[in-house]
Design a protein around this nucleic acid. Structure first.
Lengths: 238, 238
DNA sequence: TAATGGAAACTAACATGTCAGATTATAGTT
DNA sequence: AACTATAATCTGACATGTTAGTTTCCATTA
């Protein structure tokens, strides 16, 4: 695990060129955040700081700083005087996050339907076309990327500079849950249809039908979640 | 400033009894967060770590940890190898935060209108009655407290455990801007009327009129903001 | 007077040592 | 064999020394 990470992230050689002014602590924070969100580190997995220091060739200070920051985002759980572990999932938290996510995405899609430009609509249509291609070829990862991009395009319509970043910060549990649900190819066709309904509503400039289409789209997640908890209970709390 | 703080927060004597298991870093974080949000520290004010260490009788490590955490919430700005200062306000950020705030509060009030209990409605009505009393006696601070409580009651209807905390984290600029606008007694009566419209919509179980009442209530803030920037430009960015 | 150069005094970032609480392993008891 | 007490070994919290980058300010120069 850590070996794999260190291949990706030898800070001095690979990552730094694009992040010249970044501190060690920031780099480690960024790398671990991405590793946790992409499930390279499993929920509940214990993070040992000392081996990390060795692998990265830094002292304990920047590693501790990075973990502190991850804790403040609920991505890791630091048990004082004891251990640090990756935050587990919980149905409760996922429900909470889903409420926040729905509130923001619904507000965004309503704004998008009201203020859309032709370029934005074209982007959505083009994205949707690609989705259909990858849905046919059952390329789950490519489809997932397009799905994320689809929602990003809508969020960006609002011109609220940190809206995508904010939503990502609020959706750490949901994002990991979605990744766990990914190997479910039967959802793809339904997803495309739901996306299509959203695009049509935006195109027609109808915020009401856009919001209800987005709402029912997002609520699909919860339905598929409870089987997941039974499938891998070790990733969940309580 | 710091003298005043240290009176409030001599960690060893005053604050710790209620927070036995809290680390120095957490305590300092908590104290400074509250001091910044309540404008005891002005936006743009430089925070010097060394005097803080002395006042609190701790080393630089917990102070640095606390500042790191405040930075990740955009409450302070750490300039690498240089200084740390309280984050300034900016109209851009306040607009962004207002979008997020509106999205969440509108979603909450819609939920409240759909799922209200008699007890919740009673709480709102009782809160509103108190608001009217303090509005007449022009007690701005008491009114502000009730205003916050009013919105809190609505948020709590959703039973999303971290909704109030999340909104607070997303509204650090808005909260400080509202405090700056506080000495404006002419707004109070309008505010009460807007609150009353929200309560009536919730009471009638009408989510549509509840959302539109909440929306127009929240949008009042922006209108009063631009004069503020002209009044105290040193608190704002660019 | 205005501009520039450089030293001094700041700061945050980082390395490292120490300590106390928590966990785990082990030995002893029932 | 199951339970408890204790010792060894983890961990994170904190103190402190060092380093390198920034800012400040004053002297020098155009």
């Amino acid at each position: 695990m850590i070996t794999h990470l260190s291949q990706q992230v030898d800070l001095k050689k690979v990552s730094l060129p694009d992040y010249h002014s970044e501190s060690f602590a920031e780099g480690i924070y960024r790398v671990f955040r991405e590793a946790i969100l992409s499930l390279d580190f499993k929920p509940g997995e214990i993070i040992r700081k000392r081996p990390i220091c060795q692998k990265f060739g830094v002292s304990r200070t920047p590693v501790a700083d990075a973990m502190l920051r991850l804790e403040s985002e609920s991505l890791v759980e630091i048990i004082p005087q004891s251990i640090t572990r990756v935050a587990k999932l919980s149905l409760r938290s996922i429900h909470d996050e889903s409420f926040l996510r729905e509130a923001l995405e619904v507000a965004a899609v309503a704004y998008a339907a009201k203020h859309r430009t032709q370029e934005q609509v074209d982007n959505l249509i083009s994205n949707l076309r690609s989705q259909k291609l990858f849905a046919e070829s059952k390329d789950l990862n490519a489809f997932y990327q397009l799905d994320e991009k689809f929602h990003l395009i809508i969020l960006e319509c609002c011109q609220v500079s940190n809206l995508p970043a904010t939503l990502e910060k609020l959706s750490t549990q949901v994002r990991r849950a979605r990744l766990l649900l990914l190997p479910n190819p039967s959802r793809i066709n339904n997803t495309v249809n739901e996306h299509e309904a959203i695009v049509k509503a935006i195109q027609m400039g109808n915020p009401d039908s856009a919001t209800s289409a987005m709402r029912s789209h997002l609520q699909q997640l919860i339905k598929h979640l409870e089987p997941l908890e039974k499938q891998c209970p070790e990733l969940f709390n309580v």
